[in-house]
Design a binder for these strands. Structure first.
Length: 939
RNA sequence: GCCCAGGUGGCGGAAUUGGUAGACGCGAUAGACUCAAAAUCUAUUGAUGGCAACAUCAUGAGAGUUCGAUUCUCUCCCUGGGCACCA
C-alpha cells in the first residue's frame, strides 16, 4: 500500500496549478468574450509583510476565503481572489533605523518570504494581480487620490498634537508612547503642537452612518462603526461665557444631566466667575465634565490631567483623582472638583428660577401578568396600551429591555383596571407600606391592588423597589423615561418632549453631533507615500502635476525623524527645493508622508485593473467586479461592491471606516460605480497561543507555519485551522491537536487505497452495516444496506454546502470526518460516491483532493468541476426518534414516523412502559407536542 | 472609562436559533493486532450515589419569563478586541 506523502503530492500539484493558471480571473477588458456569466470578488485584508514571516492567523483568514472562492469556482463563477502587500509603515521603518538597511530592500525580502509561504499553502490567489503599496506604480495613484481630496478642499492643514520625546527629540507613534513613556529611552513624553494634514472625513459622517443600512455587515460591526461615528442628537446650551453640549439632557430633580463636549484637555479660551472669590476661572474642556448636577448629587468625576491638579492647588481645592459623591443643599464654591466651574454656571442660572424641580411620573416598568389576553399582542405591549388608554399618556414607548427590574412589576388585571405593585419578595400595601411576601403568596401571585392615584404617588419616586427603599426620605435621581409632574409648565409632558422644551427654556439649541473627528493624515516619517504638494513662495500650496506623479521617496542617509520633529525627508535639501508647478518659481516640497491607512483604503479597487497606468482602475473593470452604477441609497446599491470581504475584528472600525470614506469620495467624483466598497463583511477571530494568551515574540509562543507544513502538510494545516474552533471567535492554538486533522487526511488516503485495490471499485455493492452516528442533530439510523451510506453522503454534501456559506467550517469538517469513518468501514464504496466526497473536501484540502481526482482518471482539475448536488429525498428521514418528557424532564425516547399525526404520537407516548410507570394510571393534565421534536407530558 | 464580542467536560468545541446538553477532534484508560513498538481498530470517558436498572446535580454567578432555557430578559463577575500615529 502506497503511503500518503504530503511533500511530494503538494509540490507536484502546486506546480500543476501554476502551469495551467487555473486561478486567474478573467477581466471584461482584457479577455473580451471570456468574462461572461456570474462573477465573484472575494477579498482578504492584504498582509503586512513583517520580518517574522507568515503568521498562523493569516492562514486562518486566507483559508476561509480560499474555501469560499474554490466553492464559487465549482459553482461556475468567474472568481477574483487577489493578493498584495500593505508594506509601508512603522515596523519596517524601525527595522531600517536599527540596521541601516533600505526599507525597500527589507520589504522585497519580506514579501518574497511571504509569497513563498502563501504558495506552499495552496491558496488559489490570482498571483498575476499582486500589488504592493510601496511600489511607485501603485503609490502614484495613492498620491493622485490625495490630490483629488486637496483639490476638493477636503485635505487641509490644522494644528494638532503629536507625542514628543524631549530626550530623543523625536515624534512618537501612540504605540511608542504608552502611558506617556518613550518606548526607546523610557523618559516622559510630552504633547507638542504641530501643523498636520487633515482629511475632512467628518463631511461624510452622515453618509458613513446612514449607508450602513445598505451593506451586509454583521450587526456588531455596524454597531461598532456607528458608535465610532457617534451620531447623537443633543443640545447645546449657552450660558454667560460657556457653551455646553449635552447628549443626555434628561431632566432630573433640580437640574439636567450635563456633559461638556469637545476634545480632552483643551483650554476653551473661556472663563467663568468663581462665585465665592469672584475670580475668573479658566474652563478646560474635558470629555466628561459632570456626570450629574442637582440639588443633590455631584457624582464621581475624574480629574483629567496634571493641569487639573495644578488648578486645584492654585485654588486650594482638595485633590483627588476620583471624587466621591457629594451632596449639597446649595451652590458652594469649594466643590472638590476643578471642572466645577461649569457647575457654577449652571447653578447660577438655575438659582434664578429657584431650582426648578422636575418630577417624573414613573410608569415605564410595566408587565402584564394576570390572565386572558386573547389577541396576539404581547403582554408588555398590552400592558402599555392599557395604561395609555387609562391615563391618556400617549408617549409611552415599548422598550425592549423592560422590565428593567425583574423583581418588581406593576400588574394590571384586565377587568379591574387597577394597578398593583408587586415583587417576588415584597409588595406594596394600599397605605404605601411594603411587606415581604409569604411563600404562599409568591406561589399564588396573590396581590393586593392599589388605586391609580396611589400609583401616581409612588411613581414620583424613581427606580426599582430597591431604589424605593433607599430613597425613602431622600429625593434622588431617576433617569428613565416617563411623564413629568409638578414641573411647572412642563408638567404632564412626556420626558422626550420635555427634554427639548426644557432645553429651549434654558436657551439650548438642539443639534446633531458626531464623535468622529477629522483624520490626521500626515506623518513625520520616512516609509510612507510623500504628500505630493509643493509650497511656493508666491502661489502657496500647489499640487504636483499629474504627469509628474509619483513623487518618489528619495534616498536618505538616516531614516530617523529629525530633531525638529519633521520627517527625515526635510534633511534632503536637494529633494526639498524644487520649482513651483504653477509659476516655476522657488518652492519647497511637502516633507510629510501619508499614514499606512492610505494605501489600504483603495487597494481592492486596484486589483480589478492592477497594470493600468492611465487611471487607478478602468470604469469597465470596476463595473464588472464591483457591480454596475447605482443611484445613492437605492435598492441597487445594496447589492454592489466587493462580494465578500473578510478581515480581522481589529479592523472593524478604523480601516473599514477609512476605506468606506475614500470610496464614497471617489463615488462622488464618479470614479467608482458604487456607493459602498464592500457588499458583505465578515471577521475572523484571532489565533491565540497555547493556553489562550496572545502570540508574541516576547512570550516565545509564536508558531511558525513552515514547521507545521513540513511535518504535517499544507492540507492538514488548513483543515486544522478551520476545525480548531468557530471561525469568528478567538481560539487558542494547540500543536497537540493537529494530529487529529492529519489522521482525517490519512483516512481519506486509506479509502482511496481501498478503492484502488478493489477489483471492481466502480461497482455499487452494498456497504456493510455501521452503527448510527449523528450528523449535527440529523439522525442517521442504523441500516445494513448501501442506502444508508448514500443517505449519509447526501446529508454531508448538504451540510458542507450550507456550512461553508455560513463560515461554519468546523462543523463542515466534523461532518466530513463522520462520512470518512463510515466510508472506511464500508465493505466497498463506489468511485462515484467517493468522488463526490472528494469534491466537497477539495476546497478544504485542495492538494490531496486534486491528486486522488487525477489518479481516478479525471483529466480536468477537481477545482473546476461542478459542485455536487444532493438529493433532498435521501436527506429526509422517514423514521425519527423523539424525546419524551414527563413534567419537563426527559425520561425516555420513542420512534415515530416523520410528520406523524399528533394524536398517534401522543398515543404512542402514553402506552410507553416508562411513561406508564410515571403516570401510574393517572390521566395526564396536559400534553405538549412539538412536531418531530419532543413530547412533554404534565402529570 | 466608553463601545463590541465571548464564558459549556481534563482541553478545542457541538447543540437544527426555545425542545434529548456534551456531536466531531485532542488527551486519558482498557482491550485486539504485533516478538516488540509505531500505526490502525474496538470499548469507556461531565460530576455524585448505586452491583445494576436508575436517580440527582451540571452550560461564569444570581434571579425572572416558560410545560420546557446553553438559547430570551435583568443584575453582577471574569476574559478578549477597538478607542483615532501598530497594522
Amino acid at each position: 500500500m502506497k503511503n500518503y506523502d504530503h511533500r511530494k503530492i503538494e509540490s507536484k500539484i502546486q506546480k500543476e496549478w501554476e502551469k495551467k493558471k487555473i486561478y486567474q480571473a478573467k477581466d471584461p477588458s482584457t479577455d473580451s468574450g471570456q468574462a461572461k456569466g456570474k462573477k465573484f470578488y472575494s477579498l482578504i485584508e492584504f498582509p503586512y509583510p513583517s520580518g517574522d514571516g507568515l503568521h498562523v492567523g493569516h492562514i486562518r483568514s486566507n483559508t476561509a476565503m480560499d474555501i469560499i472562492s474554490r466553492k464559487r469556482r465549482m459553482e461556475g463563477y468567474n472568481v477574483l481572489y487577489p493578493i498584495g502587500w500593505d508594506a509601508f509603515g512603522l515596523p519596517t521603518e524601525n527595522y531600517a533605523i536599527k540596521t541601516g538597511k533600505k526599507p525597500a530592500i527589507v520589504t522585497k525580502k519580506n514579501t518574497d518570504t511571504f509569497r513563498k509561504q502563501l504558495k506552499e499553502l495552496g491558496f488559489s490567489f490570482d498571483w498575476s494581480r499582486e500589488v504592493n503599496t510601496t511600489d511607485p506604480k501603485y503609490y502614484k495613484w495613492t498620491q493622485w487620490i490625495f490630490l483629488q481630496f486637496f483639490k476638493k478642499g477636503l485635505a487641509y492643514k490644522a494644528k494638532s498634537y503629536i507625542n514628543w520625546c524631549p530626550k530623543d527629540k523625536i515624534g512618537l507613534a501612540n504605540e511608542e508612547a504608552i502611558n506617556d513613556i518613550c518606548d526607546r529611552c523610557g523618559s516622559k513624553t510630552e504633547k507638542r503642537e504641530k501643523e498636520q494634514w487633515m482629511l475632512a472625513i467628518t463631511k461624510y459622517a452622515d453618509r458613513l452612518d446612514k449607508d450602513l443600512d445598505l451593506v451586509d455587515y454583521p450587526e456588531r460591526v455596524k454597531t461598532q462603526q456607528r458608535n465610532w461615528i457617534g451620531k447623537s442628537k443633543g443640545v447645546i446650551i449657552k450660558f454667560d461665557d460657556i457653551e455646553i453640549f449635552t447628549t443626555r439632557p434628561e431632566t432630573i430633580f433640580g437640574a439636567t444631566f450635563i456633559a461638556v463636549s469637545g476634545d480632552k484637555n483643551k483650554f476653551t479660551g473661556k472663563y467663568v466667575l468663581n462665585p465665592a472669590t469672584k475670580e475668573k476661572i479658566p474652563v478646560w474642556q474635558a470629555e466628561y465634565v459632570m456626570k450629574e448636577v442637582g440639588t443633590g448629587a455631584i457624582m464621581a468625576v475624574p480629574a483629567h490631567d496634571e493641569r487639573d491638579f495644578e488648578f486645584a492647588k492654585k485654588y486650594n481645592l482638595p485633590i483627588k483623582n476620583v471624587i466621591e459623591p457629594v451632596f449639597i443643599d446649595e451652590p458652594r464654591a469649594d466643590l472638590p472638583f476643578v471642572h466645577r466651574n461649569a457647575i457654577h454656571a449652571i447653578l447660577k442660572h438655575w438659582s434664578e428660577e429657584k431650582y426648578l424641580v422636575l418630577f417624573w411620573k414613573k410608569v415605564n416598568w410595566v408587565t402584564f401578568v394576570t390572565g386572558g389576553i386573547e389577541a396576539e399582542e404581547n403582554p408588555l405591549q398590552a400592558a402599555i396600551r392599557e395604561i395609555q388608554e387609562e391615563t391618556g399618556y400617549v408617549n409611552l414607548k415599548l422598550k425592549k429591555e423592560l422590565p428593567r427590574s425583574h423583581s418588581k412589576f406593576y400588574h394590571i388585571p384586565k377587568k379591574e383596571n387597577r394597578f398593583a405593585h408587586f415583587s417576588n419578595f415584597y409588595f406594596q400595601l394600599e397605605n404605601g407600606e411594603q411587606k415581604e411576601l409569604s411563600e404562599e403568596e409568591k406561589e399564588n401571585h396573590e396581590l393586593k391592588w392599589i388605586s391609580p392615584d396611589e400609583i401616581e404617588k409612588t411613581m414620583k419616586i424613581g427606580g426599582s423597589l430597591r431604589d424605593w427603599r433607599v430613597l425613602q426620605g431622600k429625593e434622588e435621581v431617576y433617569i428613565g423615561d416617563g411623564i413629568l409632574t409638578n414641573s411647572q409648565e412642563f408638567s404632564d409632558m412626556a420626558s422626550n418632549e420635555a427634554k427639548e422644551k426644557i432645553m429651549e427654556f434654558v436657551g439650548g439649541k438642539i443639534v446633531t453631533k458626531f464623535k468622529l473627528r477629522d483624520w490626521i493624515f500626515s506623518r513625520q516619517r520616512y516609509w510612507g507615500e510623500p504628500i505630493p504638494l509643493v509650497n511656493c513662495e508666491k502661489c502657496g500650496l500647489v499640487p504636483v502635476k499629474d504627469k509628474d506623479l509619483p513623487v518618489k521617496l528619495p534616498e536618505v542617509k538616516s531614516y530617523k525623524p529629525t530633531d525638529t520633529g519633521e520627517s527625515p525627508l526635510a534633511n534632503i535639501s536637494k529633494w526639498v527645493n524644487t520649482k513651483c508647478p504653477k509659476c516655476g518659481g522657488k518652492a519647497k516640497r511637502e516633507t510629510d508622508t501619508m499614514p499606512n491607512w492610505a494605501g489600504s483604503s483603495w487597494y481592492y479597487l486596484r486589483y480589478t485593473d492592477p497594470k493600468n497606468n492611465k487611471e487607478f482602475a478602468s470604469m469597465k473593470n470596476l463595473k464588472y467586479w464591483l457591480g454596475d452604477a447605482c443611484l445613492p441609497r437605492s435598492e441597487l446599491c445594496s447589492a454592489t461592491g466587493v462580494d465578500w470581504y473578510n478581515g480581522g475584528m481589529e479592523h472593524t472600525t478604523l480601516h473599514l471606516l477609512y476605506s468606506r470614506f475614500w470610496h464614497k469620495f471617489l463615488y462622488d467624483l464618479k470614479l467608482v460605480p458604487t456607493a459602498e466598497p464592500y457588499k458583505k463583511r465578515t471577521s475572523h477571530g484571532m489565533i491565540l497561543g497555547e493556553g489562550g494568551v496572545k502570540m508574541s515574540k516576547s512570550v516565545g509562543n509564536v508558531v511558525n507555519p513552515d514547521d507545521i507544513v513540513k511535518i504535517y502538510g499544507a492540507d492538514t494545516l488548513r483543515i486544522y485551522e478551520m476545525f480548531m474552533g468557530p471561525f469568528e471567535e478567538s481560539v487558542a492554538w494547540s500543536t497537540e491537536s493537529i494530529i487529529g486533522s492529519r489522521r482525517f487526511i490519512e483516512k481519506v488516503w486509506r479509502i482511496y487505497q481501498k478503492i484502488l485495490a478493489s477489483s471492481n471499485f466502480s461497482s455499487l455493492r452494498p456497504s456493510s452495516d455501521y452503527r448510527g452516528g449523528t450528523l449535527g442533530k440529523l439522525k442517521i439510523e442504523k441500516s445494513s444496506n448501501f442506502i444508508s451510506l448514500q443517505k449519509l453522503l447526501n446529508k454531508t454534501i448538504k451540510k458542507v454546502s450550507e456550512d461553508i456559506e455560513n463560515m461554519r467550517f468546523n462543523t463542515a469538517i466534523s461532518s466530513m470526518m463522520i462520512l470518512a469513518t463510515e466510508m472506511e468501514k464500508a465493505d466497498s464504496v463506489s468511485t462515484e460516491d467517493f468522488k463526490k466526497f472528494l469534491q466537497i473536501l477539495a476546497p478544504f484540502a485542495p492538494h490531496i483532493a486534486e491528486h486522488i481526482w487525477f489518479s481516478l482518471g479525471e483529466k480536468k482539475s477537481i477545482h473546476l468541476s461542478n459542485w455536487p448536488e444532493w438529493d433532498e429525498n435521501l436527506v429526509k428521514e422517514q423514521e425519527i426518534k423523539i424525546a419524551v418528557q414527563i413534567n419537563g424532564k426527559v425520561r425516555t425516547e420513542i420512534m415515530i414516523q416523520m410528520d406523524e399525526k399528533e394524536e398517534d404520537v401522543k398515543k404512542k407516548a402514553l402506552i410507553n412502559q416508562i411513561v406508564l410507570r410515571y403516570t401510574a394510571g393517572k390521566n395526564p393534565q396536559k400534553i405538549i407536542y412539538v412536531k418531530n421534536r419532543v413530547i412533554n407530558i404534565l402529570i
